[in-house]
Design a protein around this nucleic acid. Structure first.
Lengths: 101, 101
DNA sequence: ACTCTACGTAAGTACTTTCTTACCGTTAGC
DNA sequence: GCTAACGGTAAGAAAGTACTTACGTAGAGT
């Protein structure tokens, strides 16, 4: 599984996206994230593992808390893949449009 | 479900990504796509529905065949979401890096 | 009209994902 | 040392997803 695929799969889940978007504001601890969401804390914990293994977040211990923050690397990989793709897709599309005329 | 989420979910599946990537080359019929893949033709058909409802492809009849081609719109939505996000994420990250110093 | 090719859809199955509760280890403060 | 807060992990239930085979429909050629 490539990193881009992992990142896509990770962000495809709505709950994970909400977590990720909240982290985009500022770093947060697990419990803090869970409080704003309709799922239990362990569920959030599991989602964070997925995001982490996709290179989308990093974590650090801070006393008894574990603080998660966004890791730009994962987003970067995704962006790179998408940009490369965008060019190819657009080119193919344009070629078809022109052929119609 | 937002369009960006739909697009993310659609592209998260490896088989669907292979289909989509082949379409990025040029438009193709269903059977043609299926021939290059390790899954049955109906499976490909189903994947194409998902891609279509995510705004990633369009289809047209051509005799007895159904030709699919890339629709830049879906990718565009994804790109827009990612770009908006990239800025926020990077800003948050930079803020943290500076705080450490 | 018959037939062949190309597709979509239905139904069912196997697998994966997401969630919950229960539990355990770790750190901080009294 | 006790206790309370925080969070990861295990186990299992429920739901969702990706596939298969079987079937039905529509267009093209003879």
């Amino acid at each position: 599984m490539t990193n881009a695929t992992k990142a896509l799969a990770a962000l495809a889940d709505p709950t994970r996206r909400r977590i990720f978007e909240r982290l985009a504001g500022r770093p947060r601890a697990v419990g803090e994230l869970a409080r704003g969401l309709p799922v239990s804390r362990p569920a959030v914990s599991q989602h964070l593992q997925v995001l982490k293994s996709a290179g989308l977040v990093t974590d650090r211990a801070e006393g008894t808390r574990r603080v998660y923050q966004i890791d730009p690397q994962g987003l970067g990989v995704l962006r790179a893949w998408l940009d490369r793709f965008w060019d190819r897709a657009l080119a193919a599309y344009q070629a078809e449009v022109e052929k119609e005329e």
